[in-house]
Design a protein around this nucleic acid. Structure first.
Lengths: 141, 141
DNA sequence: CTAACTGTAACTGATATTATTACAGTACAA
DNA sequence: TTGTACTGTAATAATATCAGTTACAGTTAG
């Protein structure tokens, strides 16, 4: 899995934590530990998903429009990282004579799709509010 | 996830399918669609896990020692691919002042570990024999 | 008009993945 | 005991993916 999912979750949790529920890509990037351009790319996806709103220009930035308790990690996963469980490489060769070689690709595809659904159902049980609550429970540094 | 897990499953299913339950790395590699050296690397892990036995030298190769109905994809996952769900990149900075930035890494780590357990429990329900049965159910080409 | 933003694409460098080569070690069989 | 056919493993090369960075057009507030 690439890390855009993590960046997306982190960004939404940060917005939920901030009193104004608003921040610029620069502020988010510092908190996440990456480059503002990368944050903007991820936030564009979240905007298309309807979880944040953006304003360009001076005084602009990103703010949370969704309720933290109503956005799940599954929602975010589907917007940002869907399909990332499946390896890019597939085994077998559909034209082979052997039924194992010729059908393995399809069977493994089915297995990974079902695995991804399991993963999504786990993520469906975790909201942005839950993640923020876990953060508040951490030992103060 | 890298594709060694897929190669391992494919190899074991092929061995379970073959009447002798035995094959060389060359035979397996052709069926899987990769290089024999790569198959040998994966099979070394499976040997250490106790799922196959190997014999060097002329007439050697790999054969299945475990019962196909008793080896699960979870067993294989743990031997070959454990930890592969977690991204290599982590967000946040434990030294930051903000509790979100300083604790996100740890919280996301916990989320991914639990997700991996979910994945493993799904894989625990699928045996090599199940995969082979699915292959036999596929339309003949 | 200017400063401060986002949106997005292009490019670079780093890292991960897969393929390939190489060769030492082992076992069988003539 | 020598040749052939294998495994075991490391090193290298080729390729793909990922993350960082730069660049700049477009937008908005003041």
């Amino acid at each position: 899995m690439n890390s855009e999912f993590t960046i997306a979750v982190h960004s939404l949790v940060l917005l939920a934590y901030l009193p104004e529920r608003m921040a610029t890509s620069e502020t988010i990037a510092v908190n996440v530990g990456t480059h503002p351009a990368r944050v903007r790319k991820v936030m564009s996806c979240l905007r298309r998903g309807g979880y944040v709103d953006t304003r360009e220009g001076s005084g602009g930035g990103y703010w949370l429009t969704a309720q933290p308790a109503e956005v799940t990690l599954k929602d975010i996963y589907r917007v940002i990282a869907i399909g990332s469980l499946m390896p890019n490489w597939c085994s077998g060769n559909p034209d082979a004579d052997c039924i194992v070689g010729s059908n393995m690709k399809e069977v493994m595809y089915g297995i990974f799709c079902a695995a991804e659904q399991r993963l999504e159902s786990y993520f469906a049980g975790i909201t942005i509010a839950d993640v923020l609550a876990q953060i508040r429970e951490c030992e103060p540094k």
